[in-house]
Design a protein around this nucleic acid. Sequence first.
DNA 1: ACAATCTCTATTGCATAAGTAGGGATTTGT
DNA 2: ACAAATCCCTACTTATGCAATAGAGATTGT
Lengths: 153, 153
Amino acid sequence: MKLSLRGEYALRAMQVLAERHGGPVVSIQTLSEEQNIPKRFLEQILNDLKSSGLVESRRGMAGGYRLAMAPAAVPLASIIRYIDGALSPVSCVSERFYEKCSCPDETRCALRSVMKEVRDAVAQMMEKTTLADLIARAQKLRAVPMGPMDFII
Amino acid sequence: MKLSLRGEYALRAMQVLAERHGGPVVSIQTLSEEQNIPKRFLEQILNDLKSSGLVESRRGMAGGYRLAMAPAAVPLASIIRYIDGALSPVSCVSERFYEKCSCPDETRCALRSVMKEVRDAVAQMMEKTTLADLIARAQKLRAVPMGPMDFII
DNA sequence: ACAATCTCTATTGCATAAGTAGGGATTTGT
DNA sequence: ACAAATCCCTACTTATGCAATAGAGATTGT
């Protein structure tokens, strides 16, 4: 039930790009250092994201990456789907990555109906949360930076 | 974001065992045929489930497996967690399989707070749904066997 | 020209998943 | 007692995908 590291890196990089949206492009170097992501690996991931149309790049000395659209227009689901594939726990309930499963009767499969609800919950969450929401959350978290336990010393 | 095949097989086998709860034990052979699961692979899985205490076995000629407890006492979450591990999309939000992540500040990570909500949604669903619920669903699905489109011809 | 960047393809190493195999132990039916 | 069907256990194989690394090329600003 896990996201790949690749997917996690993609989300984190995209969040940084979203925070700097409007400013100059951000280099892999910067993203890599800021988020502790292996540079060469991140390079691949950003290349994929570029193919997806979610980011644009600028080459050369002052090159780097930026979002291809406004943060509010990019749901997390798009990023994950492009990098990792299905959001569904089993592919027989996936809308975009459907594959037949080996169970005797898919139409009457009780497990399938449960998994469909899980899928819907996850998809709805990932669909409605955009990079802009991520930025808003980050701001709130900065405002109340510490958990309750951190005041003990 | 996917369940392993191993996990899916486990759930399907457990569902059959739940349906036959109270009756005689069910052999691997039967489970394998009924659910189209490779026999030898299923054998391993059932062995694992036995170690977890969720099923009991009986050896010998009329041997097989049965649930170790009532279907209503077995949430899907227990099965998945035992076979596949965490329900969380990233391990830094997992309650039982927590691992530190590589992001600069976990306590203020916006992505993490989103993932935590996803985790909670999935966990709640898997926790509240038991094998007994699965049986109930299966009965409802048998009562209304076909989807609307199936009436066209 | 040069340096910093992105671009593209390939390769490697590693872990895990999925499935297979063989032989042993236990129970039942005859 | 014996055979047949089953579970039990360990090991092995094979495939797949993930994570990371490598090298050579293209683009841009100075």
